[in-house]
């Protein structure tokens, strides 16, 4: 009798569990904070209860995944936009929505004061830990197959490529990134500013990143070190504040076009007479016209200022203030 009762309870609980897990988002966890513009969704689905999954982003992008009889886990990389993202995952059985789950994700941006830090309810998410990877290895090779100091001839052979290909789609791409030499920077170490990441992910990047950057860009370190004046982000080795080390539509992988980027912090330069205000009332332009000293590029902050270091105060490109004028005003 006792045995019978035990079986009854067991089968009930099993059935209950079955209905509960018809669709389950394994990662990301609720209120997932991300620094990268894509997030990997891992969805567990029971083939007996649903026959297709739909992922719907808040920009109404819909991704359909059919259910395969041989597997119970499904992965998809979802592109994120800066700020709060709400992604719905809907399970269908015979074209009827059976189960719906949603996740809130937040993409921070280093060059957007509003979205610089995670809101209180969000927690920074980490993907590459042993617990998550245990699921992944059923289908994916989760090892690093990169040869130190030698790029892939066919980048698609990188084990990182399949899930992270979104990061290298923009116009200007950083060579180590587009050649999938990921561990050059993602060395699993942490810096003084991201000690919290320690041991949470295998592929953390030290913050400040400077030493990693300068391991290749040695010349810059040497040159800038000799200069009297330094731009704070460059000096403190936080190159990734302005540069996106993967890919960006702007030259030099800047996170915004250079004028927009500079004025993110230097807001007082947006309006008003920055360079010189003549008696004719119109101030000297700082953008929107061609730069005679670097044709055919547009005038921008970097036309006059060095964004990293200089021997002239105000980080000017020239030896003196008058020198900077004569770069364009030749007579």
């Amino acid at each position: 009798m006792k045995l019978y009762l035990f079986f009854l309870i067991f089968s009930f609980s099993w059935l209950f569990a079955q209905t509960q897990t018809s669709l389950n988002i394994v990662t990301p966890q609720p209120f997932y904070g991300s620094e990268e513009n894509s997030a990997s969704f891992v969805i567990e689905a029971k083939k007996t209860l649903i026959d297709s999954i739909e992922i719907i982003t808040d920009t109404n992008e819909t991704i359909k995944i059919p259910i395969d009889a041989n597997r119970s886990f499904y992965c998809k990389s979802i592109k994120l936009h800066v700020g709060e993202n709400r992604v719905k995952v809907v399970g269908y059985k015979n074209a009827v929505a059976v189960k719906e789950e949603a996740r809130e994700l937040y993409l921070t941006s280093k060059v957007d004061k509003e979205h610089r830090y995670l809101p209180k309810e969000y927690v920074k998410g980490y993907f590459h830990n042993d617990e998550n990877e245990k699921l992944c290895v059923q289908c994916h090779d989760m090892s690093v197959n990169e040869v130190k100091g030698e790029a892939f001839v066919d980048v698609k052979k990188s084990n990182c490529y399949e899930c992270h290909k979104n990061i290298n789609t923009k116009k200007h791409a950083h060579a180590p990134s587009v050649n999938w030499l990921c561990t050059t920077c993602h060395n699993g170490e942490v810096g003084a500013l991201n000690k919290a990441d320690s041991a949470k992910t295998k592929y953390s990047v030290p913050d400040p990143i400077g030493d990693v950057c300068f391991s290749c860009h040695k010349k810059h370190k040497e040159e800038w070190g000799k200069n009297r004046f330094n731009h704070e982000p460059a000096e403190s080795g936080r190159c990734n504040k302005c540069h996106n080390s993967h890919s960006e539509d702007n030259e030099m992988y800047l996170r915004k076009s250079s004028w927009d980027l500079c004025t993110t912090c230097h807001k007082d330069k947006i309006e008003g007479a920055h360079v010189v205000k003549t008696f004719g009332r119109a101030a000297h332009p700082t953008h929107g016209v061609k730069d005679p000293s670097r044709m055919p590029k547009e005038l921008s902050c970097i036309s006059c200022h060095s964004p990293h270091a200089s021997n002239t105060s105000s980080l000017l490109h020239s030896q003196s203030v008058m020198g900077i004028c004569s770069r364009c005003h030749k007579k």
Binding site: A151, A175, P176, K218
Partner: peptide, 13 residues
């Protein structure tokens, strides 16, 4: 086949 740039071998493809 590979060009050496800052100690990393990149294929020319």
């Amino acid at each position: 086949e590979y060009t050496d740039f800052n100690g990393v071998k990149f294929p020319l493809r």
